[in-house]
Amino acid sequence: MQWTDEAILLGVRRHGETSVIAEMMTRERGRHLGMVRSGRSRAMQPVLQPGNRLEVTWRARLDEHLGEYRIEPLMLRAGRLMESATAVYGVQALGGLLRLLPERDPHPHLYQTLDIILDHLDEPAMAGELFVRFELAVLNDLGFGLDLEECAATGTREDLAYVSPKSGRAVSRTAGQPYADRMLTLPDFLKSGASRAADAEMLAAAFRLTGFFLERHVYEPRGINAGTAREGFCQAALKTLRSAVEETGVGALAAPSSSA
């Protein structure tokens, strides 16, 4: 068995004296493990860093075997990703989300979105928005997608303001007002056709929204927790965004050009 694909490295763990087991998010074959011989060598260490984009060739006698990777670097961005807390936590949190999906299950749209986010982790508003959309896409692929297009009570697409914690569906301001204290806020940037970028308040509400449904549908039923990386990313992104606003006096930064 042999194939070649584009991949983003999620992490490595030691295997024997000189080798490592590399965990990749591949474009066409999903999250996939494989051994890299001499992966702990001085030459390979800069290449085998989380966030780097690689061309990988995987070989094994049988498809169900662990197999072995041969690697060629395409984009070594790990050095830049280690320059800010937002990026460091972001890489770890994104890897954690992808580990919720079955190994070797193709998700090419998540690969594409992951690649875009990694290029923008040093831009707090864009990174935060893309991260939230990535979480929504993961929820959808796990079978727990949210419906944010129309009001669950009236069917209207106008003035959507809340998300029902029970159904995961949007609710209009009028219909949801009597139950506002039990509703989750629907941030403006997640509404259909929105052009305004997220400010810190909207981004915090979005993190609460996706975090609630991940906990309810994924972490709690599986008996696991989200870990510290997601919380670290959320706090770092909000802190950086608020600091940028204080320094510039600008309420929101430019909206992302791509989304999940």
Rank of each mutant, 00 (worst) to 15 (best):
D181E: 14
A226I: 09
A170C: 12
T156V: 07
H217Q: 05
S172A: 11
F212S: 06
R222G: 03
I224E: 07
K166N: 09
E150G: 06
G168R: 02
E158K: 12
A161D: 07
L214W: 03
E149I: 13
C151L: 10
R173K: 14
L214V: 03
S192G: 14
F212M: 06
A161N: 08
A170Q: 07
F207S: 10
E158G: 08
S167W: 12
L203C: 05
A229P: 05
R216W: 06
L148M: 12
A170P: 00
A204V: 02
G227F: 15
V163L: 08
T156C: 00
G168M: 10
P187L: 01
M202F: 11
F212I: 03
L184C: 02
L160V: 02
A194G: 01
A197M: 11
R196F: 07
Q177D: 02
F213C: 05
S192L: 13
L203K: 05
A229C: 00
D147H: 04
R169T: 01
S164F: 04
G211I: 05
R182D: 14
L160I: 06
A198G: 07
L209M: 14
R169C: 15
Y179C: 11
A180M: 09
V163C: 11
P178D: 04
G176V: 12
A206D: 02
D159A: 12
R169P: 14
T174K: 14
S192D: 01
A229Q: 07
L214D: 00
L148V: 09
F207R: 07
V163R: 06
L203R: 04
I224F: 02
G155L: 09
L214P: 00
D188L: 05
T174C: 11
S195K: 11
G193T: 00
R216M: 01
N225H: 03
H217R: 05
D159W: 11
Y219S: 04
V163A: 03
I224C: 08
G155P: 10
T156G: 03
R169W: 12
L146G: 00
G227V: 08
C151F: 08
H217T: 07
A180S: 04
A197S: 12
R182K: 12
V163D: 01
D181I: 10
E158T: 13
P165M: 13
R173G: 14
T228Y: 01
R157I: 15
G211M: 12
E220V: 03
A153K: 15
P178C: 10
I224N: 04
T156K: 03
L160G: 06
A229L: 08
S195C: 08
L209Y: 04
K191A: 15
S192A: 09
S167N: 06
L184Q: 04
S172V: 10
M202Q: 15
E201A: 11
A161Y: 05
E158M: 09
G155W: 13
G211W: 11
K166D: 15
P178I: 07
S192I: 05
L160N: 12
P178R: 04
E149P: 00
Y162F: 09
F207E: 08
F213S: 03
T228V: 09
L186H: 00
R157Y: 06
S167A: 13
G223C: 10
A204T: 03
D199A: 01
T154I: 03
L184I: 02
S172G: 15
Q177V: 10
S172W: 10
T156W: 01
T228H: 10
F189M: 01
D181V: 06
F207C: 01
F207D: 01
G223I: 06
R196I: 10
